[in-house]
Design a protein around this nucleic acid. Structure first.
Lengths: 189, 189
DNA sequence: GTCTATACCGAGATAGAC
DNA sequence: GTCTATCTCGGTATAGAC
């Protein structure tokens, strides 16, 4: 099949979500996907190259999801709230943040897709907060950049804290709390 | 030496911080500590048992650090601010949160020390926020529990985000932003 | 209590046939 | 493009001497 490559990428995306990078072996990818070793090393130089392709694909997917969601809201703060308060499950972990702590991710090549994703995400959130302040919907007690950093951190940290507590719901408490606190900064019109 | 056991625990604590659980091999612990294989398996049943001892020790150490810091401040919000705004380095990761995402940590036995630590930490922060509200220093727009969850998440997420961006300072931006936002909830006396 | 030698397994990758 | 056989290395642990 000409689609074996795509199948390997999708399988890797799933396994990176479930187990991270270091704990995902080529053998596991092959077993899960049904492909053979020959195919794997024909399409990719090795595990690292496949993982980068998988992370890039995942980053694009999440970016697109974010853009779709933002497009539905004319109020920038409503867009942020809709993004943050999606129902998540900390026991599964973030589809992309899950990977960050793996020791191998200190390799700049492997880390690049993550850096790109979080950088772009920060930029988009900053824009939304900026817009809210320009439209006088939001106090300027914090800069748009600070709010974006805190939003991303609350979400990622909620995943960490929820996983440690073995309570998948806790990540939603973290994001909800952020939004509640953010709403105290809304300005009356 | 009678202290070999303690030496192994300290070495494991350091390696758990640097590399997490899965990526730390017994061999590495032995090489780093100078101990031999015989000692290792004499004092511990295996890697898992050593890691649990190391995590328990680390959790106690961090708990004590927290208590010391709190004891220095009569104002509960000043205590929270002092805790959150310590200078940290995301490239090194949290001494205990660093470990949470490792696949092996799904084992309840391995996870227990983390669960205990984060549970206790949440309790202590909740108490501080509770006290601040009781003393009318803090608005009650959020519950003490919500604020504690957000504080922990902002810190842990700051580590994740900072590591992804390969900028160790970012974790401090996250905690500073939280404190700035929290300060908008202070009540005039 | 500590040492060295040994065993077993899976990770990651290559070789060469089809 | 895909398959199977094979290779090397390190992780994890045990055995038995000192």
């Amino acid at each position: 099949m000409a689609k074996t490559r795509e199948l390997l990428v999708e399988t890797m995306k799933q396994l990176l979500w479930e187990r991270g990078y270091d704990a995902t072996s080529p053998n596991l990818v092959l077993e899960r996907s049904g492909a053979g070793k020959g195919s794997f090393y024909h399409h990719f130089k090795g595990k690292k190259e496949l993982a980068i392709a998988a992370m890039d694909s995942r980053a694009d997917e999440l970016s697109e999801e974010f853009d779709c969601l933002v497009a539905k809201h004319s109020d920038p703060l409503a867009a942020v709230a809709a993004y943050m308060c999606q129902t998540r499950d900390a026991s599964k972990g973030c589809r992309i943040g899950r990977i960050v702590q793996d020791p191998s991710l200190e390799d700049p090549l492997l880390n690049a897709p993550l850096k790109r994703f979080f950088g772009e995400q920060h930029g988009k959130l900053t824009q939304l907060f900026q817009q809210a302040q320009t439209e006088s919907l939001l106090s300027d007690a914090l800069s748009p950049e600070q709010l974006a950093t805190l939003a991303i951190s609350a979400l990622q940290g909620g995943f960490v804290y929820g996983r440690a507590m073995q309570e998948g719901d806790v990540v939603n408490d973290a994001t909800d709390s952020f939004i509640t606190l953010l709403n105290t900064q809304r300005l009356a019109e």
